[in-house]
Write a protein that binds this DNA or RNA. Structure first.
Length: 753
DNA sequence: GACCTGCTGCGGTTTG
């Protein structure tokens, strides 16, 4: 972002403190702060010394919230009613509650009301605010949506004079349907106001700040002032490898038998030895593995006769159990290790931890960074990261891909990119159609009716729907108004109103959030809620479960209320949580894996087993000549080594179905399964398919028509089929355009004889 | 062979 696009600051950062409200300066002195941190001084200068938007990107402990609020409150102080001064938007209710606690005292002194506005927040404060709207509201995107749909008049009264919109954890809104939703809501808030409010974004460290700036202010991202701070803690790092027996080779466990011993036992032993006595986070990768690890660690404590200090934390555990653990970490009185999924990644206040462990190779550098940021936050203490990777013992006639030890190589590649400070850009494309349909219904509900041209103008200017052409928009509206859909209907004067089905959709409690939620069973022990498991998980009385780090026997199952009553038990099987797809890896991480295979240096941060596995993988890579040859045959299967990320491999696999091939995408590329393995050549149709792909690639529309499952987001089933395919085609066009190049390089590199 | 996030308004009852 060129500095020349800004007007000069009227306040230099070293004078920022003096520009703050006298009452705030007094408050700062009472906190015994030695002064403003650099990020806070810069942000104060930018917010009080200019009129533009500001993006603050810094690590977890840099004091970002104060950097935004101290100057914003300085301007809001003394403002009288008829509208809010500051709207703060956060992705989590817990974050809103944290900030509320930190702001109340200061706002009281400034005589500014501050109100929490989310589903669990007290109603009385909301009602009081509506009587005299002023001050600060802390809110979730879904509650903004609800306000537009249910209390349009209140929305106008609250938002018409806003000075600032502060968005916390901006990185959590980039590249997802929830971010599209919020961006659209911010646009609609601006439309209510006499003058658009300034926007302040708070974010973790970003790979490319320009993308966050474009999200924050789509019509002039170049004018968003960026304030960035690098976290500088020393990093202590180890990658540990574990070789486990091939579980497919061993006979199946009898039902209700003991939990299969795996490499997790060895990992649990190491975690027990290293983490006991301090606070730590262990990221397990899946809820099932979190449960398995926490269970092993707890039993380990029992065996040693010491108090348990290892507890699970994931999205299926009840709020009570999770908050108990969060409080125990924050209070820091008893040593505590949370074994978690990504639940403890975002900025809930749990204090600093001694170390972070990652079980399984990291697949996202953005997430790895965020996780690592949880340790080494105090001055002079290092960040400690341990990565544990499992590989299976090879069968007598192994597959070349297994021989290449991809898990260990992926972990090495991820650490190299971590050290190179690479962070992947947000992935985009999905959910645009769902969000646009949803916002059309929402605007019609807000206004009690709207003309098509007004809808287009309100929603499709600069922002998440900017690239939607009027003709496609019109087709979507026509589809929504069709006799089968009945989402909307047109009055004789042309006004679009909600139709019979539209009324039902908008009236549902399920309308406000744009992400899916499945119905789940509640697990209860003696009246105490333990958490939930998905509905598709079959359980019956006498079934055994491992949940919340303990073993349970099912006492009763109540179909109607979806409650499972359980009691503690010794023995059990691990619940099979809902299975989805794998977490995608980025092109750059796949390319780094190739670099790791090609080179021969062994990083000092590998333990002996990891070093052996890396050497084994590299030897297999050379043996298969995989640097030169990218088409590897093995019986029925032909591996195409693309060294590309998950998204492109998925498109390649889909494109090859055009020639009748069955393909599977994975981390090293795509595997085609051919019909007649007795032929000792590559099936001519695979080579022909690649040649055709190189010379005559499918158009995005053609590929969209071929793919059955383009519907993935919440309201996609309400979007007309042909319209949905056009949105999919538009979202994937850039990836599809790369297919000829990928096909050509596969062919040029050659194939195994 | 994945994870996470959120939720109105009304009428009734209870409580300070």
């Amino acid at each position: 972002m060129p500095a020349s696009s800004f007007e000069p600051l009227t306040i230099p950062p070293d004078r920022a403190y003096d520009a703050l409200h006298p009452e705030i300066r007094k408050w700062i002195r009472e906190q015994h702060w030695t002064g403003l941190r650099p990020v806070q001084a810069e942000a104060t200068a930018a917010i009080l010394g200019s009129r533009g938007d500001v993006l603050i990107a810094a690590g977890t402990a840099a004091g970002k919230t104060e950097a935004a609020f101290l100057p914003a409150l300085t301007q809001a102080a003394g403002e009288e009613g008829d509208g809010l001064s500051i709207l703060y938007v956060a992705p989590l209710k817990a974050l809103i509650n944290d900030q509320f606690g930190r702001l109340t005292e200061l706002c009281e002194r400034l005589e500014l009301p501050v109100v929490r506005w989310h589903g669990d927040a007290p109603q009385t404060a909301k009602t009081r605010l509506l009587a005299k709207p002023r001050g600060i509201v802390l809110i979730t995107p879904e509650s903004i949506e609800a306000m537009f749909v249910r209390r349009a008049a209140a929305a106008r009264a609250l938002f018409s004079r806003l000075r600032f919109i502060i968005v916390d954890e901006v990185h959590a809104f980039l590249g997802g349907v929830r971010g599209i939703h919020l961006a659209s809501l911010l646009r609609r808030i601006d439309a209510l106001a006499k003058a658009p409010a300034r926007r302040i974004g708070l974010s973790a460290t970003l790979g490319d700040p320009r993308m966050a700036a474009a999200w924050l202010r789509p019509d002039s991202p170049e004018a968003v002032r960026l304030i960035a701070a690098e976290g500088g803690a020393e990093l202590q790092l180890q990658l540990r490898g574990y070789l486990v027996p091939d579980e497919r080779a061993s006979p199946a466990e009898p039902e209700n038998g003991p939990v299969t011993p795996t490499g997790l036992d060895a990992i649990a032993d190491h975690l027990f030895a290293r983490l006991r006595g301090t606070n730590n986070l262990v990221f397990g990768g899946s809820r099932q593995r979190v449960e398995a690890l926490a269970d092993r660690l707890r039993r380990r404590c029992e065996r040693e006769g010491v108090p348990n200090e290892f507890f699970p934390h994931h999205g299926n555990l009840s709020k009570e159990l999770r908050e108990e653990l969060e409080l125990r970490l924050k209070e820091n009185r008893l040593p505590t290790t949370a074994v978690c999924t990504s639940t403890l990644e975002l900025g809930i206040d749990i204090g600093s931890v001694r170390s972070v462990a990652q079980v399984g190779a990291p697949r996202s550098l953005a997430a790895l960074r965020q996780r690592l940021g949880r340790s080494g936050r105090r001055k002079g203490t290092p960040s400690i990261l341990r990565i544990y990777v499992l590989e299976e013992e090879l069968p007598p006639d192994p597959d070349p891909l297994d021989e290449m030890r991809p898990a260990v190589v992926l972990a090495v590649a991820a650490v190299r990119l971590l050290l190179a400070k690479f962070i992947e850009p947000p992935s985009g494309g999905e959910g645009v159609a769902t969000a646009l349909l949803h916002q059309c219904l929402s605007v019609i509900a807000e206004r009690g009716g709207a003309r098509a041209d007004a809808l287009y103008r309100i929603l499709c200017g600069p922002g998440p729907f900017a690239s939607v052409p009027p003709a496609l928009f019109a087709r979507m509206l026509r589809g929504m108004g069709s006799p089968e859909a009945r989402l909307i209907e047109q009055a004789p004067d042309g006004l679009l109103m909600l139709g019979e089905v539209g009324e039902k959709v908008v009236g549902s409690r399920d309308f406000y959030a744009l992400f899916e939620s499945s119905e789940e069973w509640r697990l209860v022990n003696g009246g105490r809620a333990l958490g939930t498991i998905p509905l598709n998980n079959p359980v019956a009385p006498d079934s055994l479960l491992v949940f919340a780090g303990r073993r349970w026997v099912v006492l009763s199952v109540d179909e109607r209320s979806r409650v499972i009553d359980v009691a503690p038990h010794r023995g059990g099987s691990i619940p099979a949580f809902e299975r989805g797809s794998v977490e995608p890896i980025h092109d750059r991480l796949a390319a780094e894996m190739l670099a790791v295979y090609r080179e021969s240096d062994v990083p000092a941060w590998l333990d002996p087993t990891a070093a052996d596995l890396l050497a084994e993988g590299r030897a297999a890579f050379r043996r298969h000549n995989a640097d030169r040859i990218r088409i590897l045959e093995r019986g029925r299967e032909t591996h195409l080594l693309t060294w590309r990320g998950t998204r492109l491999n998925g498109l390649l696999a889909a494109a090859l179905t055009r020639s009748g091939l069955q393909c599977e995408a994975h981390d090293l590329g795509v595997t085609a399964i051919v019909e007649r393995p007795e032929k000792d050549e590559v099936q001519p149709d695979l080579l022909a398919a690649l040649e055709e792909l190189a010379s005559q690639p499918p158009s995005p529309e053609e590929l969209a028509a071929r793919i059955g499952a383009v519907a993935s987001a919440k309201f996609d089933n309400l979007v007309p089929d042909d319209v949905l395919k056009d949105f999919w085609a538009a979202g994937n066009a850039s990836g599809i355009a790369l297919l000829p190049e990928v096909a050509s390089s596969l062919l040029a590199a050659g194939r195994s004889a």
